[in-house]
Design a protein around this nucleic acid. Structure first.
Lengths: 305, 305
DNA sequence: TCTCAATCATGAGACAAAATCACGTTATAA
DNA sequence: TTATAACGTGATTTTGTCTCATGATTGAGA
C-alpha cells in the first residue's frame, strides 16, 4: 500500500522544494515522481502536497507521512548498515564450544586477544560436555567447535590446531613412575580418574584401553584438573591428560608423567566450522589466534619425574 | 534494496515457524516466499535463516532484520491509520480566518461547540486584517475564510452564513439620531471611526460613500468595538457597524443606530472553502454550527434610539 | 531401507508495478 | 506576446513479483 520508496520521495521533495529537483536527487524523471505521487494520493484518498506554491507545501496528511519518514528511514538505514557489517564479516557471532576440559587454560588468553581485535563480534563459549557439538554446529547454534575427534561431514570444515600427547599422570612414589612407558595391562589394577563424561568421549578408552581390551580396576570421576592432580599426587589413582595440561604440575614435582604405550598416544585438536563460513574473516582470524596461543606456552614434556 | 514486504515476510516466517505456513498467512505461494527470501539473501550477501530446522532458525543477520521489522512495521501501521483517519475526514485541520472584526462574538461559542464534537480536528483562528485571506485559502494556509465580500474563484466555494444590515452608530444627542435614514452627504462633515484596515476593505466606503463620491470630514481608526462605541457615545464621531454588533449597546441606550440610505446597506457574511474540500465532513459541520450560532442571538435592530 | 508426507528450491511464464519518453498545460517574468 | 520553468498525461518499455509445475531433501514409520 505505502512503501519506503514513497517515504523517500516525500523526504526528497521536502528537501528539494520541488518535484523537478527531487527527481534529480532521486535519479528518476520528474514524470516518474508525478506518477508516483498521484498514485499514492489516489490510493490514500488524500492530497499530500500543494504543487502550486514554491517551495511546494505539504498538507496535513503529507506532514504526517513526513513524520513517518523521519521515524522509519533512519531505522532502515541503520538496519541496513548493520546487515552490511554482518555481511562483510566486520561483525558477527562466534559461539564456540570446546570438548576438552583442559583447553580453558590456553583458550582464555586467545579469547581475550580476539575480543580486543574484533570488538563487534559477539563471543560466547560453552563447554560441550552435556551435548553433542557437531549437530549444534550444523544447525547454527554454534559457529566453531574445538574437538580432538572431528567427525567428517560435507558441510563441515576441520582445521588442525595442534598435536599433543596424552600421557598418564602418576604419583611420584608409584611403581609406574619409573617406567619408560606404560602398557594397557598395567592399568588393569589401577584406579583411573577421569572427567565425568561419557566413556566413549574419553581418549584413554577409545585410543588406548579399548584397543587392548583392558578395563581399569576402578573408575573415579572428577570435574576439575587441579582436583585430579591432587588425587593422583596422593596416590589415589592415575589420570590420562594432555601433556601440556600437566606440565605446570610436573615442574613443581607434584606428580610424574609416563607415555601411554611405546609410541605414546598422540591426538590432534581441531577447530570445526561450517564450510559455508569458511571465508568469514573473523572465524579464520580466531583460528589463527587460537593456534598461536596454544603453540606459545604449551610445550609438552614427554617424560618427567 | 530492502522493502517493507521483506520485513513482513520475515515477521510472518518467525510467527509461523516455516515457509509453508508463512506463505499461507501472507496469502502467497510457498514458491513466492522461497524466491523472495533467496533474492533478499543474495542481495544482502548474508544468509537470513536456516530452513532445515523446525521451526526455522534465524541467523544473526535474520535476527537483526526482525528487530528492524519490530521497530518499523508498527510505525508504518500507525502512520497508515492516521492517514486513513485524515482521509475519511474523522480528523484533520481547520485553520480559520475572519475578515470581520465584530465576528468574534458569535464565533467563539461556535468554536467551543465544534471543539467538543470534533476533538481530533486541529483548530486555529486568525484575524485576516494584515493579509489577504483568499490567496492563503487557495494555497492551503487556511481552510476556511469568513468574509463579507467573497471573491469568486473556480477553486473556491462560498457558502452564505447570514445577512445583516450595516448601520451607522451615532451619539444619542446627535442631530443624525433623529433621522429615519442617513444619506451619504450627511457624512461629509462628520468624523468617521473605522477599524484600522485598508480603505477598500471597509464596507462603509465600498458599499456606500464611494458610490456617492462623498468623503467624511475626518477619519479616526480604532481596533476594538467597545472603544469605537465609547467614542461614538461621547460624540467624537460616527461608526458603521453590523446591526447585530451593536445591539447590546443599543439596548443599554449608549448610542443610537440609523440605517444607511433609504434601503439600508445589507451585506451577507460568507464562509469560503476550497472546492476540493467541499465533501470534508467536519468543514460542513463547522459551517452548520457557525450558522446556527450566528442566527441564534444576532437579531439586528434596524433603528433604535 | 524403503516408502510417504512434508518442506524447501528452481525455472519458465504471466502479470502488474514503475520507470521512461514525448508532448501538453499552466504560471511567471521579460 | 514570448520565453522559461514546472508539473501533468498517455503510450511504451522495463523491472519486479507472483504462480505453476516440478525437483530435491528430510524425517517418520512400516
Amino acid at each position: 500500500m505505502i512503501g519506503l520508496r514513497h517515504l523517500e520521495t516525500l523526504d526528497a521533495i521536502r528537501e528539494a522544494g520541488s518535484l523537478v529537483e527531487a527527481a534529480e536527487r532521486l535519479h528518476v524523471t520528474q514524470s516518474a515522481l508525478s506518477h508516483q505521487l498521484r498514485d499514492l494520493e489516489d490510493r490514500l484518498g488524500v492530497s499530500l502536497l500543494n504543487r502550486r506554491t514554491r517551495p511546494v507545501r505539504f498538507t496535513v496528511a503529507g506532514e504526517r507521512l513526513l513524520v513517518l519518514a523521519d521515524q522509519v528511514l533512519p531505522l532502515m538505514r541503520q538496519g541496513l548498515r548493520d546487515i552490511r557489517s554482518l555481511a562483510t564479516g566486520q561483525s558477527g557471532r562466534l559461539h564456540l564450544a570446546i570438548e576438552c576440559h583442559a583447553c580453558f587454560q590456553w583458550l582464555m588468553p586467545a579469547l581475550d586477544r580476539f575480543r580486543e581485535q574484533w570488538p563487534q563480534v559477539e563471543l560466547d563459549l560453552s563447554a560441550a560436555f552435556a551435548f553433542a557439538p557437531q549437530p549444534a554446529l550444523l544447525r547454527g547454534d554454534l559457529d566453531m567447535v574445538i574437538s580432538s575427534d572431528p567427525v567428517e561431514h560435507d558441510a563441515l570444515l576441520w582445521l588442525p590446531l595442534f598435536s599433543y600427547e596424552l600421557v598418564l599422570a602418576v604419583a611420584r612414589d608409584s611403581v609406574l613412575a619409573a617406567r619408560d612407558f606404560i602398557d594397557a595391562q598395567s592399568l588393569a589394577d589401577q584406579t583411573l580418574i577421569t572427567y565425568p563424561v561419557e566413556r566413549d568421549r574419553l581418549d584413554i578408552f577409545t585410543a588406548f584401553l579399548d584397543q587392548a581390551g583392558v578395563e581399569p580396576a576402578q573408575i573415579r570421576k572428577t570435574e576439575l584438573t587441579p582436583m585430579m592432580i591432587q588425587l593422583v599426587a596422593a596416590g589415589r589413582g592415575v589420570a590420562a591428560l594432555p601433556s601440556w595440561a600437566i606440565s605446570e604440575y610436573l615442574q613443581h614435582d607434584l606428580i610424574c608423567s609416563v607415555p601411554l604405550g611405546r609410541q605414546g598416544v598422540w591426538r590432534t585438536l581441531h577447530a570445526g566450522i561450517r564450510r559455508e563460513e569458511a571465508e568469514v574473516p573473523f572465524l579464520l582470524e580466531f583460528f589463527q589466534t587460537a593456534r598461536q596461543e596454544s603453540l606459545r606456552g604449551l610445550q609438552g614434556i614427554r617424560r618427567v619425574c
